[in-house]
């Protein structure tokens, strides 16, 4: 297979980036998209160029490092996957493939396709936890949690923090990310005592860090590698509004 690649190249956070075109041939259909980029990088290095910088680590869709915006879609033209799970069989030989970094004010580009997502950590620091010290926990089975609730909490908890929701959103909103954590911890009895405080703090931090507001378009849900439901955003809204109106 062969492709024309238009890849965003940017030296560092301060410099201006631009698309650079590459032609690549000899791509096998068994490659993953990232292996295709590895292959491109090999040829770039051997010909004296700088390789394309992109983030990746576990390469099995769970660490959330990979973050490429491919042909207009976060994580490329397939559903329920991270970029590392995208296979070249999703493309036709001869295609032009446009590869961009996540673009958002809160995710500044550091180099080529690498962006800084530390804003997500800052949102978590605002309240994405249950305040229990090590050793202070009660016996695990002392608080039964119905299976339905545990499963729903799990469905929110599987967020990998990749940022595809922000990239997918026309407003660069981080609502799905925030909602996943708020919802998970609000559902579980352990997280209830701090639920309202948590919702307020995390939303305030999200706003402060320059993420946009939610338009409920559903693009985030559709592009989320883990298929986290918009219902969690509704729960976040509810938690937040309850918190506000109670005080």
């Amino acid at each position: 297979m062969e492709f024309k690649l238009k890849i965003w190249r940017q030296k560092n956070a301060r410099s201006q980036g631009a698309f650079v075109e590459y032609f690549i041939s000899g791509v096998s259909k068994e490659m993953s998209f990232l292996e295709m980029l590895d292959y491109l990088n090999k040829t770039l290095i051997e010909s004296g160029d700088n390789p394309v910088a992109f983030e990746h680590d576990c390469r099995e869709g769970i660490c959330g490092s990979c973050s490429l915006y491919i042909n207009g879609r976060p994580h490329g033209p397939d559903d329920l996957i991270a970029t590392c799970e995208l296979r070249m069989t999703k493309f036709k030989s001869g295609d032009t493939i446009i590869v961009e970094p996540w673009r958002a004010k809160s995710f500044p580009v550091l180099r080529d396709l690498i962006v800084d997502r530390y804003a997500f950590d800052k949102i978590m620091q605002a309240g994405g936890f249950i305040s229990v010290n090590s050793g202070a926990a009660p016996e695990a089975n002392s608080i039964p949690v119905s299976r339905e609730v545990a499963d729903e909490a799990f469905d929110a908890a599987i967020c990998i923090g990749c940022g595809a929701c922000v990239a997918a959103c026309k407003n660069s909103s981080a609502m799905l990310f925030v909602a996943a954590k708020v919802s998970q911890l609000a559902l579980l009895p352990q997280g209830k005592p701090e639920a309202e405080k948590r919702a307020r703090a995390m939303v305030a931090k999200m706003d402060e860090l320059g993420f946009g507001s939610c338009s409920n378009t559903g693009a985030c849900e559709a592009e989320c590698p883990k298929g986290i439901s918009l219902a969690h955003i509704a729960r976040l809204n509810r938690e937040f509004l309850l918190a506000v109106f109670k005080t």
Binding site: V132, S146, R147, A150, A153, F154
Partner: peptide, 19 residues
């Protein structure tokens, strides 16, 4: 296990609600 459950880890549960 106690610690992780208290921290909000949604371990699988039986229909009874127990782990």
């Amino acid at each position: 296990i106690d610690q992780l459950v208290a921290a909000g880890v949604p371990f699988a549960r039986e229909y009874s609600g127990y782990l």
